[in-house]
């Protein structure tokens, strides 16, 4: 699972609706791998406008990934080094194994062979 996808997901357990806690999910026991992705400037700029920057910064720092400014820069387009790093982080950094744990309710979403299992249990729907 790519880090972009992680930024798109939140805990969706029915009773877990505190936006301060149900996003971003916290990675635990992860195994990372780089998988090449198509470079596309238009998409990347589009995504910069959509991703939650603080959540991305928090997540990357928890994973020990560096190279992102702590606050979203006003202009990303004219910074080729930052564009390259964003591409590597958002689109090419994958979680092969591990889990995503909700900071609110504690639900643990397992990731196996790069595929996250986001199904809820009976008491969570």
């Amino acid at each position: 699972m790519r880090l972009l996808t992680h930024n798109m997901l939140q805990c969706h357990v029915k009773s877990c609706n505190d936006p301060a806690l149900n996003f971003p999910l916290q990675f635990q026991e992860v195994e990372l791998e780089q998988i090449e992705a198509e470079e596309n400037e238009a998409l990347l700029l589009n995504l910069v406008g959509k991703i939650d920057w603080p959540a991305l910064v928090q997540t990357t720092s928890e994973l020990g990934i560096t190279g992102l400014p702590p606050t979203k820069p006003d202009v990303v387009k004219n910074d080729p080094a930052l564009m390259k790093r964003l591409h590597e982080i958002l689109l090419e950094t994958n979680v092969a194994q591990g889990k995503m744990v909700c900071r609110g309710c504690g639900h643990s979403y397992p990731i196996k062979d790069g595929i996250p299992n986001m199904l809820l249990a009976e008491h969570e729907i």
Partner: peptide
């Protein structure tokens, strides 16, 4: 290079932010 991710969940209770 273009297929980003496939996930397992029920669309009627989905985790998309």
């Amino acid at each position: 290079k273009l297929i980003l991710d496939t996930l397992v969940f029920d669309i009627s209770r989905n985790p998309w932010r």
